[in-house]
Simulated scan of single mutants.
Amino acid sequence: MREDTRISFQNDKKLDVTYERLQHGAVSLQCFAIYLSERWGIPRYEYILDQIDVFKSRVMTTAGGVRWMRWKEEAAELEQEIGSVHPASKAGQIPWGLLSVEGADGFEGSLFYVRMCYEMGVRFLGITWNYANWAADGVLEKRDGGFTEKGKKLIELCNEIGLLLDVSHLSPTGFWELTERTERPFIASHSNAKSICPHPRNLTDEQIRAIVAMDGRIGMTFVPWFVREGGEKPVRPEELLPHIEHFCSLGGQNSLMIGSDFDGIDAWIQGLEHPGRYPEFAELLCKHYSEELVRKWFSGNALSYLKRHLPESEGMHGKPVK
């Protein structure tokens, strides 16, 4: 949307996630990722600001509206609104939006810029994309380094202000270093189980157990090559079931949520191409699991995390963030 001002969030087919599809899929909360494309050259802070402006001026103002979630009180408000995993009871509901930044590159090494983005409403930070930046190494960086000295200060700042951290693209060494340094449980926003599909972006059993132990969250992703090796046949929604089963076998039933990666992919699971297909996916899961578990994966686990770890709104006025 930053690259093409003609794209409408209402119903533009260039997007996976649109307002109409959120309504059709009965989606109550969508995370909107600020991502700095490699096409734009050297990452700059202004590119992050541009996308915050796109969210405010072109997403929130869509006919029907999108509410901006920033505080734990708002997560509690949404929890009260949530009904069944089935869409009928939520038709016409105004969805909420969360803002995240994928990759700290655009902060240009400035912790002041990070703090300012938090104050402007960003609530999640994916520390790296796939490669190294000023804070840490990404998962595809061959040297597999951890955090730089400034990256360690970034962890301290995020813990202090309540900016939640996301490890989906972080190097293995960085992952384990963060488990030792963070005071708040982190998330892996869009990763699957490496034991089921051995892609480097997926999580090992040890990483899954570590996230579960700290009461973090894991968003299962719909990137086809993170679901199944090989691209000869289209990936079907049923092929997510072994990942779900594996997460549950490691104690992750209360940590699992929907991670998708919509609008971050150029190939899709057949039958799960956009959020308007969630009702069918919910029906599929309910054939294999209890409705209570499916509710947790579609909303309960994410909301319990947000209620616990988003800052209280009084933090905006100079009082301690809890």
Rank of each mutant, 00 (worst) to 15 (best):
Q270M: 08
E81G: 07
K307S: 09
W297H: 07
P200R: 00
L157Q: 01
F262W: 15
Y289S: 04
S313Y: 04
E183L: 12
F124E: 12
A91P: 05
V321K: 12
K14C: 09
V101T: 11
W297A: 09
A75Y: 13
G145L: 04
Y113S: 10
I258W: 05
L170E: 01
G162K: 03
Y45H: 05
I211A: 07
S84K: 05
A188E: 00
S304T: 12
G251I: 13
G318Q: 14
I161N: 05
I34E: 00
R2Y: 02
S299Q: 06
A75T: 06
R209T: 14
L256D: 05
S191L: 04
T182G: 10
A91M: 08
D266T: 12
E229D: 09
R181S: 09
A302L: 11
M116G: 05
I269M: 13
G271Y: 03
R295D: 13
V59D: 06
E280I: 05
R44C: 02
F262R: 07
S191E: 04
E119V: 04
C248Q: 12
F226M: 03
K150E: 13
Y35G: 00
D105P: 00
L78E: 02
M1D: 01
N130S: 11
A104H: 06
I42M: 08
L240P: 04
G174C: 00
R236H: 02
E283P: 02
S57Q: 15
I196A: 03
S313Q: 13
E292T: 14
E74Q: 15
A188Y: 01
K72G: 06
G162F: 11
G315C: 15
K142C: 06
R123Y: 13
D53R: 11
V294H: 05
S57M: 14
